[in-house]
Amino acid sequence: MNAIEIRNIAKKYKGFSLGPVSLTLPSGCILGLIGENGAGKTTTIKALLGMNRPDSGEISLLGQPLSADLRNEIGVVLDEVGLPENLHIRQIEKIMKYSFRNWQSDAFAEYIKKFNLPENKRFKTFSKGMKMKLGLAIALSHDAKLLVLDEPTAGLDPLVREELLDLLNDFTRDEGHAVLISSHIVSDLEKVCDYIAFLHKGQLMLCEEKDRLLEQYGFLQTTEENLNALEPDAIKGRRVTQYGAEAIVDRTRVPQTFDIRPVTIEELFVYMAKEG
């Protein structure tokens, strides 16, 4: 079963238009949504979660359209965790317990302990990292099958980011679980994602399996003349300087005489975005 199916959603705002975007995330996988600031990542996620209404297109989550009841199976962490500022963790837990059908107090207590979150402090006194951890603890404590994370690593230190990525890996060990994570910190996504989707200026540039992308594309350093001699379709992005030329190329369309080194997802994104 597909955890997420987005078919041709489009949304127009004054000065920005998204899509049409089509994405599919199979269960048991992590999909990374990559894009520069203002590329449309949050708009896509908001459409997915019913916070805005797309002008066209269809969305289904866990095989059905979004409904209030389905939210029991979706864990969400937005870029800013918005919880009542004057409440303590125990009070917040009580609210969640009354809200989610399958709330797991034991799991929540374990996460609170694991993340070293103070139970006797008000939420407003928490640091950004602590707030994010609490948001994650809530998202992971109601037996969610799908996690949707919007820029969860922004503003976090490398240690916390690493912890978060480990957690996502653990979560998707269950075949029925899936994660959609958006970020502009591409290196984070490269570590954990099975699928990568690039959004650039509201348009979906590609949505592929990460391993396939890394296999298909390579990084070529050569002269400008050599680069111009290649088929135009083989070049996905290029940069020419006074010292030579660099390009992201489709390995299958470039003669084997060229020395092509493996590409990183970050390089792929940066070059493709510049070309686009």
Binding site: L49, G50, M51, A68, D69, L70, R71, N72, I74, V76, L78, E80, V81, G82, L83, P84, E85, S99, F100, R101, F123, K124
Partner: peptide, 21 residues
């Protein structure tokens, strides 16, 4: 006011409750 300041306004949309509720 508190909901708007703390961003609970947005967060509550992630709970299994309808807009009617």
């Amino acid at each position: 006011r508190r909901d708007a300041v703390s961003r609970w306004e947005t967060q509550q949309m992630m709970l299994p409750v309808s807009r009617f509720c």
